[in-house]
Amino acid sequence: MDTSQPLVVTLPARPTREEVARLCAALAAAPPGDVRCRIHPEAYGLPAVDALARLALTARRHGHRLTLDGAGPELTALLRLTGIDQVL
């Protein structure tokens, strides 16, 4: 596996528990490194916040550096409101 390029995962607009579990499993199986999470532009609400919190926790546990790409203004505001933006 080429570790010079970041691992890219995509958060769907309305993530399900199964999708989040699959993304977390991919993070757990990958060697430590940079991870870019592309966020669907229509992702919003508490399911998206929960998914991002789970991804951040899994990434941290496995030595990854997680960056977010494409969070819309509503999701960004909700992340700020919940305080999770400080963790991400």
Rank of each mutant, 00 (worst) to 15 (best):
M1S: 13
S4V: 09
Q5I: 04
Q5E: 12
L7N: 05
V8Y: 10
T10S: 15
T10W: 13
L11F: 03
L11R: 02
A13S: 14
R14V: 13
R14L: 14
R14I: 06
P15S: 04
P15E: 05
E19T: 13
V20W: 02
A21L: 12
A21W: 01
A21S: 13
C24Q: 05
C24Y: 00
A25T: 09
L27K: 13
A30V: 01
G33M: 07
D34S: 12
C37D: 01
R38A: 14
I39T: 03
H40C: 11
H40F: 01
H40A: 15
P41I: 12
A43P: 11
G45M: 11
L46K: 04
P47W: 04
P47Q: 10
P47R: 06
A48C: 07
V49H: 11
A51S: 05
A53P: 01
A53E: 13
R54G: 09
R54N: 11
A56R: 15
L57N: 11
T58R: 12
H64R: 13
H64K: 14
L66Q: 09
T67V: 09
T67A: 04
L68Q: 02
G70P: 07
P73A: 14
E74F: 13
L75F: 08
A77M: 04
L78G: 05
R80V: 03
T82Q: 03
D85I: 03
Q86R: 12
Q86W: 02
V87P: 00
V87A: 01
L88M: 05
